[in-house]
Design a binder for these strands. Structure first.
Lengths: 155, 155
DNA sequence: TATTGTTATACTCTATAACTATA
DNA sequence: TATAGTTATAGAGTATAACAATA
């Protein structure tokens, strides 16, 4: 809890929660201007990196349940950003890939992510930003946080 | 979005989102062992600091809507942690205060918060932890983040 | 018999808006 | 007329579990 009633720097965890929520909210806002939810963005990013994934693996990577992926891909497919192809190796599953539009949108998403990063770190000097990155990376590594999702915002 | 496919430290915002979510989730887990939601915890903390608040002000401070406060206080009152007293100055409103049990639980909550903090920062040296705190505090100040809630976890 | 994807259902959480009592 | 608190309703988001097709 926020120990703001007690003295000293007990507040780091609380600050981390708050700033993480702020970063997630701002990112969600930016993806929204691209017509995407954070979850959509997570899918595009993952398929950009690993084309041909099936829905089950995608669910695992996103930390989501398979049934949730259905609606997500349905929506992206309807918008012409992702396509399903029946796997010839295992015809139960689809191979998922970005369309041309999907790849363009992913590129726009990456530009947006860089702007988001720049805005967030604007109050810091480049040296401070680097320092912050290193400290956060150390915490992430110690907690094996290399998942592909923005937990609270659902991506 | 996570620019893990692009090189370099663009990842700070993403790390911040992830670690913030982790910190919130762990805190929620700890409060749960005390029989509290993060929102409950936020109320106890606020009433501990400012006894006599009414529900409307509490709603403002928590960034919640007044109707949400009703169920929150109902629950805490039923458990004997908070009491409502009609304000003699304005009999439309209640003055909210912690009971003795509420104060004891708040004390336990603060111990829990310190454990949470210690666990989270365990991978860092004390110097690194101090550095991280300062950098986060700088970001929080630049974004006027001194609200009393854990946004995503609802407290 | 197990697994991929799908659907239907139910559940949780929360905001919105209408209502009451006081002011 | 406005405000504090309450209630009822509805909506978003998501998980669970049953189901069809394929392995």
């Amino acid at each position: 809890m926020d120990p703001s009633t007690t003295a000293g720097p007990h507040r780091t965890a609380f600050l981390l929660s708050q700033l993480g929520a702020l970063a997630s909210a701002r990112f969600a806002e930016r993806t929204r201007t691209l017509g995407l939810t954070p979850a959509d963005a997570g899918v595009l990013r993952l398929l950009g990196r690993t084309p041909g994934l099936n829905q089950r693996v995608l669910a695992d990577r996103l930390g989501a349940v398979p049934s949730r992926i259905v609606a997500l891909i349905d929506s992206l497919e309807t918008r012409g950003l992702v396509e399903r192809t029946r796997s010839s190796a295992d015809r139960r599953s689809y191979e998922l890939r970005l369309t041309g539009s999907g790849q363009e949108l992913l590129a726009a998403l990456r530009r947006t992510a860089r702007e988001h990063e720049a805005q967030l770190l604007d109050p810091l000097t480049p040296e401070q930003a680097q320092l912050l990155h290193d400290l956060l990376a150390r915490l992430a590594a110690a907690n094996s946080l290399d998942r592909d999702l923005h937990q609270n915002t659902g991506s």
